[in-house]
């Protein structure tokens, strides 16, 4: 019994340590699927000195293999559709997807275009939507932190 309890507590502690590590170091891969650049520059602005996402341990990585969080901007265009799926598959588990901007969340002004394959959640599962055109960097920071906390904890 005691041993069993001990094991259980060990396990839960391990689990807590792991989830702490995951929450504290979300590495971000940013994919532009036909955005107008507005969201993209706001994401980069979130890494710039005023908002500094790195204080939460976030890093902007260049390879999906290193990433935990996928930030998708833009209403998925036809040419970017296979690439979006491929990038999503290349990110190792566990991962979260954050749709940044109204285009990515609902397709907004581009809805109805022949070239747009609809909002992101039609193609891959999305965990957090950050609405705004473009969302402020604070909102993006909040979105990333919320996504990581809700999924990795």
């Amino acid at each position: 019994m005691v041993i069993c309890m001990f094991r259980l507590s060990c396990k839960s502690m391990m689990f807590r340590v792991i989830s702490k590590g995951r929450v504290k170091s979300p590495w971000i891969f940013h994919l532009n699927t036909g955005s107008c650049n507005g969201c993209d520059i706001e994401i980069v602005a979130a890494f710039a000195p005023r908002y500094d996402l790195e204080r939460f341990g976030c890093l902007l990585v260049g390879s999906p293999r290193h990433a935990d969080v996928l930030l998708v901007t833009g209403p998925v265009t036809r040419q970017m559709l296979p690439r979006l799926i491929r990038v999503y598959e290349q990110i190792p588990e566990p991962k979260v997807v954050v749709a940044v901007g109204t285009c990515a969340s609902s397709g907004s002004p581009f809805l109805g275009s022949e070239m747009v394959e609809g909002p992101v959640d039609r193609i891959i599962p999305v965990d957090v939507y950050v609405i705004g055109c473009p969302p402020r960097p604070e909102a993006i920071v909040k979105g990333v932190v919320t996504a990581v906390k809700s999924k990795f904890r």
């Binding site: 792991i18 590590g21 995951r22 170091s25 500094d52 790195e54 939460f56 341990g57 588990e93």
Partner: peptide, 21 residues
């Protein structure tokens, strides 16, 4: 001119990376 990550950030990174797919 940034705040920067906590000093023990590399430990968090490693814990996370070791538990990934």
């Amino acid at each position: 001119k940034r705040i920067g990550p906590p000093i023990i950030q590399p430990f968090y990174d490693l814990i996370k990376l070791f538990n990934k797919e």
